[in-house]
C-alpha cells in the first residue's frame, strides 16, 4: 500500500463496476484525484454520478475494481471502511441533519463519539465552523427552524468538524430554492480555495467554471469525458457531452 501513499493521488478508482441486480450502474469507472483538487462530476439523471461518489465512502458497495482513499484500500474490512469514513466528509442533497439535535449538537456528535474529543473543544470548534459558514447565531436552534440554505451550511460544518481530508458533495444545491443556492455555493467556493480536496456532483456550471480543476461527464454508468472546465465548456470532444451541455446551459 506504500506505493499509493507516496503518490499525490488521494483518491484512486480503478475499473469500478457495480450492478443493481441485472442493472449495470457503474461500468469500469476509473478516476484519480490529486490532493487539493476540486472535481465536478456532472451528467444526466441516472448516469451513475451519485452512485459513484457514494461508493467512495461505502454508502454503496462496489462489486469489481479497486477504490483507494488516502492510501486505504476500500474492502470488506470494517476497520478500513471506518477509517475511510473518518477521512471523508459527505454533504447530501436532502441535508440529512439530525432533527432531534440542535445545530451545535449536530456538529459535535461525531467529534465527541468518533474522535473522542471533549465536549468543550468540540463546541469551540463547532462555533468556529458555524462562523466560517456564516450562521453562528443559529447554534442553539433545531434544524427544523432553519431555511434550506442554512441547513445545508450546517451540514457542511458538520462534515468539516471531523477534519476530513476529502469532501464529497452529492447534489448539494438541488433541493434548494434559487435564492439559497448562492449562499451554499459561496461556502463551497471558500472551501475549494482553502485547498480542500473536493468531489462534487452538481449541475451548477458557474461553480464548476469558477473553482473546478477538472470536470467529469458521466452517462449510463460510464465516464464519457473529463477535462478542465475551459476545455469542457469551449471544446468538448464527445458529441454526448456537447448535447448535454447545450441542454443545460
Amino acid at each position: 500500500m506504500s506505493d499509493h501513499r507516496s503518490s499525490d493521488d488521494i483518491i484512486i478508482c480503478e475499473a469500478v463496476n457495480k450492478w443493481y441486480g441485472e442493472y449495470h450502474a457503474l461500468r469500469d469507472v476509473s478516476l484519480r484525484v490529486k490532493k487539493g483538487e476540486v472535481i465536478v462530476v456532472f451528467g444526466p439523471s441516472g448516469s451513475g454520478k451519485s452512485t459513484f461518489i457514494r461508493t467512495i465512502n461505502r454508502l454503496e458497495e462496489h462489486q469489481e475494481g479497486r477504490i483507494i482513499v488516502d492510501g486505504i484500500e476500500m474492502s470488506n474490512d470494517i476497520r478500513n471502511i471506518d477509517a475511510i469514513r473518518r477521512e471523508t466528509g459527505m454533504v447530501f442533497q436532502q441535508f440529512n441533519l439530525f432533527p432531534h439535535l440542535t445545530v451545535i449538537d449536530n456538529i459535535t456528535l461525531a467529534p465527541i463519539w468518533v474522535r473522542k474529543k471533549t465536549r468543550k473543544e468540540s463546541e469551540a470548534r463547532a462555533l468556529e465552523l458555524l462562523e466560517r459558514v456564516g450562521i453562528k447565531e443559529q447554534a442553539r436552534k433545531f434544524p427544523g427552524q432553519l431555511s434550506g440554505g442554512q441547513q445545508q451550511r450546517v451540514a457542511i460544518a458538520r462534515a468539516l468538524a471531523m477534519e476530513p481530508r476529502i469532501m464529497l458533495f452529492d447534489e448539494p444545491t438541488s433541493a434548494l430554492d434559487p435564492e439559497m443556492i448562492k449562499e451554499v455555493l459561496d461556502v463551497m467556493k471558500e472551501l475549494a480555495r482553502s485547498g480542500m480536496t473536493m468531489l462534487c456532483v452538481t449541475h451548477e456550471m458557474g461553480f464548476a467554471r469558477e473553482v473546478a480543476d477538472r470536470m467529469v461527464f458521466m452517462d449510463r454508468g460510464q465516464i464519457v469525458e473529463e477535462g478542465t472546465p475551459e476545455q469542457i465548456f469551449t471544446n468538448p470532444r464527445q458529441e454526448r457531452t456537447k448535447l448535454f451541455l447545450s441542454q443545460i446551459l
Binding site: 466528509g89 461525531a110 463519539w113 468518533v114 458538520r158
Partner: peptide, 23 residues
C-alpha cells in the same frame, strides 16, 4: 426514520451501534 439519517451518521464515521442509539 428516513434512511438518509442512517447514511449521514455512517458517513460521519459513527458505528452501527452509535447510529442506532444516538440518531
Amino acid at each position: 426514520v428516513n434512511k438518509g439519517q442512517r447514511e449521514a451518521a455512517r458517513a460521519l464515521g459513527l458505528t452501527n451501534g452509535q447510529t442506532l442509539r444516538l440518531v
